[in-house]
């Protein structure tokens, strides 16, 4: 495969996106698509502005972000802790191995009934559901990242007087596994957005609930505004994370 230069690649990508939108707009205007089922792209900016002017946009984004932040933080922290612990402590690994195998295939959304019974229809329930998907991603990536660390590094640490478990955790296991662990964190940031909307469809205030309302009114343009909002927020978070990641892994070739 021949490689494209960066400006060329970027302009082709932009062209692809613009072409898609133009095609969409044109087919609607030509009557090839039903106008009551698909919004006209050119109306989206206006609708977006109306949502912002009403204060609705900020309100729902703020509330979704808070579910997201709490869910992702708890899920990541627990996932990394349990994953690293399982990789380093054989007894702990054996103790929870079957439990993990049992719970792993259950999709986060299947926990919604319990979330509502335990926490009610409120932000805690949303954060709980979000944290589940994020937990599993972080659990598995950090487990395999730590398992893959060259045992030779541990031998070096021991040869240089770092016999204590905490010393080797901080000086070998975590830094050596950092590329994998950060990869899991990043995947979790994406997974979190997927469950945010689903968790809010059940009436917990946020982007998901607003989209549900809009679809009840057949306001497809509002639905698209929030789809784009999620895409934008994801891109923003991902870009910020990449900056942090690049800084933390600047030792890599």
């Amino acid at each position: 495969m021949s490689r494209l230069s960066r400006p060329r690649r970027l302009s082709i990508s932009a062209l692809g996106l613009a072409g898609f939108i133009a095609l969409w707009e044109a087919s609607l205007r030509a009557g090839l698509l039903p106008g009551n089922l698909v919004p006209l792209p050119s109306t989206i900016p206006g609708v977006f502005w109306a949502e912002i002017a009403d204060g609705i946009w900020f309100e729902v984004v703020r509330s979704s972000l808070s579910h997201y932040a709490v869910g992702v933080a708890i899920g990541s922290l627990l996932g990394i802790t349990v994953g690293v612990g399982a990789a380093l402590v054989p007894t702990f690994n054996a103790l929870h191995a079957w439990l993990a195998r049992l719970l792993r295939p259950i999709p986060p959304l299947a926990w919604i009934p319990f979330a509502i019974i335990w926490f009610g229809v409120n932000p805690t329930a949303a954060a709980f559901i979000i944290s589940i998907g994020v937990f599993w991603i972080n659990y598995f990536t950090s487990y395999s990242a730590v398992r893959a660390v060259d045992p030779g590094y541990d031998e070096v640490a021991i040869a240089f007087g770092q016999q204590r478990f905490v010393d080797r955790l901080a000086k070998v296991s975590l830094p050596a596994a950092a590329p994998g662990i950060l990869g899991g964190l990043r995947a979790g940031l994406g997974q979190g957005w997927m469950t945010v909307v689903a968790a809010e469809l059940f009436g917990i205030p946020g982007i998901g609930q607003r989209m549900m309302e809009a679809s009840g009114l057949l306001a497809t343009d509002i639905v698209v505004v929030y789809m784009l909002t999620i895409a934008g927020l994801y891109a923003l978070f991902d870009a910020l994370f990449m900056v942090v990641q690049r800084r933390m892994l600047r030792w890599q070739p």
Partner: peptide, 21 residues
């Protein structure tokens, strides 16, 4: 060691400091 086995996540000086910690 036979292979240098430096910690790639530490700068050279920090690698040399390992045993001093």
């Amino acid at each position: 060691f036979q292979a240098p086995r430096l910690f790639p996540w530490r700068r050279v000086r920090a690698n040399v400091e390992l045993g001093l910690e």
